[in-house]
Design a protein around this nucleic acid. Structure first.
Lengths: 132, 132
DNA sequence: GTAAATGCAAAAACTTTGCAAATTC
DNA sequence: GAATTTGCAAAGTTTTTGCATTTAC
């Protein structure tokens, strides 16, 4: 089994600001949107640094990466288990909490102001070839 | 509510071959991989046509688009409800069927040859602003 | 002091699009 | 014959990367 070494070795100013921004974000921004917010406090930060840190934080389980959005990837500063719903037309993403879901069989959810038509469920882990 | 008009108006040679390829695909290819297979039978097809048809077919529910893969989007020729598992390291995607999942609460799955560490659940539909 | 992280800019990767020509019904 | 679809090529988007410099510990 691969050693789970932390990738968070140095708390740089840029990383700290990014973490604070994600912690306070109450929506599901794209990397570029995050970049624009972080830039208010770290004007010289680069988009590359934002991407690198978002990768680190999501690998460390401190944020969530949402790929199933029908468009650009989005990020969620809340790492606690919860789920999402997105609009097939405009792409907006909203949170869904465990309590809003009927777990009696394949999940069903109701979300005020949303007509849900389906869901996607993807598990993740390691195949035996990659598990050393 | 928007009219659910079919986007499959003409069965072109390219579209038919693509549909046959997807129907027989027993793995989860990327658009480019599909392009390479289809090209064996339709050498002049363009990657743009592949993308356009993959979009049409997934909007029509004839194939599945898998975005939550940690990398490139992948496509699944099987439109029947089923789920996926992917390797966080090498990115391989495998199928999971309903019966392999424990639906008693938040889903748990076992998949031979796979160590599962988590899952993502995303609902889709239409927000009230987009539902006309 | 040393290794990790950044900024910059370029490149890579992926996807969409405009338009004339070809094709389907 | 009319409207859809294609091929081509270009452009658009999104993400990653190499490398010299800076920064954290």
């Amino acid at each position: 089994m691969a050693k789970a070494s932390s990738s968070l070795q140095r708390m740089t100013r840029q990383r700290r600001i990014l973490m604070e921004v994600m912690d306070r974000a109450n929506w599901h921004p794209t990397a570029e949107e995050i970049y624009n917010v972080v830039r208010e406090r770290a004007p010289r930060i680069s988009l590359g640094t934002v991407y690198r840190n978002l990768d680190v934080l999501s690998r460390e389980g401190m944020i969530m990466k949402i790929e199933e959005t029908g468009g650009q990837r989005r990020y969620d500063g809340n790492p606690k288990p919860h789920f999402h719903v997105f609009c097939l037309k405009c792409g907006v993403v909203r949170d869904l909490h465990e309590n809003d879901i009927n777990w009696d069989g394949p999940p069903e959810a109701t979300c005020p102001g949303f007509t849900i038509t389906g869901f996607k469920l993807v598990f993740e882990g390691y195949c035996s070839a990659c598990l050393d």
